[in-house]
């Protein structure tokens, strides 16, 4: 069983919700990422979502855009991201790592080469923001061959019929985008998210994680009532920017500290 499915089914058995944490590889500099990944695990992250820097991150709000810019100033890219995951796996074989990014760096590497390299590096899944399932038949196929999960996104605007189609192709978990907007937006509507998740539950048994707009323990807890997991990103990336000039150890510690209260809040369910 893939690390993602195992982790999510273990959590479910314990009656707990998954905490998914997002940082950008190489933000604010390459020395920070690996330390922070380990620190996040120590502080209670269940799944690491590692952002692959891209020059044109269309789906991101200003906070994560800056994270991509800081990372790209150090030329970190997809190849470097795979190398970081490989290093992470030297001491951590259990925590699932999902790469989150945009289609072009994967396209440039080539679907088959990517799938193979990602597998070898110890990546568990890929979430591509600008790659709807219709446009990705080859990549989906190659990921499947390499036993990597292709994480599909569902949005508040996804009609039922389309959601059914996407759900039927999905594995690992479903990523529900909680709002119409970019990452870090401030208009989360909990009741609306609950309703959509309940609707999705009628179509699938796959775990559903919710991202975009979750900023603190309170919103994480509220979303965690209906979802199987919550994704926290902008909060962490904002801290990366704030502490840009500090030592890697200090940044990793501070970012790790941020998720402690969130972990606690979602465990209070």
């Amino acid at each position: 069983m893939n690390r993602i499915s195992k982790r999510l089914s273990d959590l479910k058995a314990e009656g707990r919700k998954a905490l998914v944490t997002y940082i950008v590889n190489g933000d604010p500099n390459p020395d920070v990422t690996l330390l922070t990944m380990h620190k996040l695990v120590e502080k209670g992250a269940d799944i690491i979502e590692l952002g692959v820097p891209f020059s044109d991150p269309m789906a991101e709000g200003p906070v994560i855009q800056r994270g991509h810019e800081r990372a790209l100033a150090h030329k970190t890219s997809l190849r470097n991201t795979l190398a970081v995951v490989k290093s992470f796996r030297e001491t951590n074989q259990d925590t699932p790592v999902v790469l989150m990014g945009y289609a072009n760096p994967v396209e440039r590497m080539g679907a088959e080469v990517f799938a193979e390299n990602a597998k070898n590096a110890g990546v568990d899944g890929l979430l591509t923001v600008d790659l709807p399932p219709e446009e990705a038949p080859i990549l989906i196929d190659k990921l499947k061959t390499a036993e990597l999960e292709n994480i599909f996104l569902l949005a508040p605007t996804t009609p039922r019929e389309r959601a059914e189609k996407i759900v039927s192709m999905a594995s690992g978990f479903l990523y529900y985008v909680s709002l119409k907007g970019v990452t870090g937006a401030g208009h989360l509507n909990i009741a609306e998210v609950d309703q959509r998740i309940n609707e999705l539950r009628t179509m699938t048994d796959l775990p559903i994680c919710v991202g975009f707009g979750i900023k603190d323990g309170e919103s994480a807890k509220a979303i965690g009532k209906s979802a199987d997991g919550v994704v926290v990103g902008s909060l962490l990336v904002a801290k990366m920017g704030e502490l840009e000039n500090e030592s890697p150890e200090m940044i990793a510690q501070a970012v790790g500290d941020l998720i402690e209260p969130i972990r606690k809040a979602i465990d209070e369910q």
Partner: peptide, 12 residues
């Protein structure tokens, strides 16, 4: 060509 956008925009 095609449609390489966020899922949120597909229905629009």
């Amino acid at each position: 060509g095609g449609r390489f956008v966020s899922e949120t925009l597909i229905s629009a």
